[in-house]
Design a binder for these strands. Structure first.
Length: 272
DNA sequence: CACGAGACCTGTTCGC
DNA sequence: TGCGAACAGGTCTCGT
């Protein structure tokens, strides 16, 4: 599920509790470690994890790009959900969900579950988060990400605009949905070369990126297919997965092409 | 440096 | 109805 708005939603739920459930991660202590799919753990070894995590307490939950950062009294647990991952707290007595790859027994009769049908998701336990997050570009809703920065940065590369926006070392957090939506709002064809984007268009794109991300967060992210978290942004897509449907601006049928090996949705009239 | 292909995985939907 | 192909919110590595 995870692009910036979905990961942000999960971070908020972990930090403050789900709507309807006040259980929050900070303050809960780890009592047991269960790794069901070894490759989910990127670092350190399973043995080191089992030896070191029990007894530690969660103190804080943050997001950086598409990564979740779960601060502990010693070190930090990082998680990347990739395509199908999910991370949530649930009571210890109900059955583990299918596709659980990793879970922690917590104090107060709770557990933290890392669920991931496609097994692409990864977890790290490190002392220094920068060792994993070091190459990420700026947060698109942060102070560094200004219209002027984007204009300049676009011209430091000569690449197709869509793959460039998906590159996490360029900007951290955009994925396939929000990139398509942002390029539509900005009226930029996904195939355009970054160097050919004008300064006026860069300003528009900056605004479009922040708009779609804020909308996504407001709707608690997008819920597609069998993965459901209660998000609602899927009902507000303008072009993503709208192939053949009328463009909300000009009624031209939305088209699907492949750009950088990713399905790409756009309006051939609005995005020249 | 930029780009495409292939890997990593499982589940759902599409087309014949 | 059945079955294989295509596709899915991501990222890494390798070769050109």
């Amino acid at each position: 599920m995870p692009e910036l708005p979905e990961v942000e939603t999960i971070a908020r739920y972990l930090r403050e509790g789900h709507p309807g459930s006040a259980i929050a991660l900070p303050g809960l202590r780890i009592e047991g470690v269960h790794l069901l799919w070894n490759r989910t753990l990127f670092q350190p070894t399973p043995k080191e994890l089992v030896n070191n995590l029990p007894g530690l307490t969660f103190t804080q939950v943050d997001r950086r790009g598409k990564y979740l950062q779960l601060q502990l009294t010693n070190g930090v647990l990082l998680a990347h959900l990739r395509m199908s991952g999910d991370l949530f707290i649930q009571p210890d007595e109900i059955p583990l969900p299918p596709h659980t790859r990793f879970w922690l027994k917590l104090s107060q009769g709770q557990r933290l579950v890392f669920n991931d049908a496609r097994k692409f998701g990864r977890v790290w336990w490190v002392q220094e988060p920068a060792s994993v997050l070091g190459r990420l570009g700026p947060e698109p809703l942060g102070e560094m990400f200004t219209p002027n920065w984007l204009d300049t940065a676009l011209h430091e590369h000569r690449r197709q605009i869509k793959p460039l926006l998906l590159d996490q070392s360029f900007v951290a957090g955009l994925g396939n949905i929000y990139t398509d939506e942002a390029l539509f709002l900005a009226g930029i064809h996904p195939n355009r070369l970054s160097t050919d984007v004008t300064s006026a268009e860069a300003v528009k794109l900056h605004h479009a990126i922040q708009t779609v991300l804020r909308e996504g967060i407001q709707q608690n992210g997008a819920s597609i297919d069998w993965v459901y978290r209660g998000g609602d942004f899927q009902n507000h897509f303008r072009v993503y997965q709208q192939t053949g449907k009328a463009c909300p601006v000009c009624n031209t049928p939305i088209e699907r092409i492949v750009v950088g090996q990713r399905g790409t949705h756009f309006c051939p009239n609005c995005q020249q």
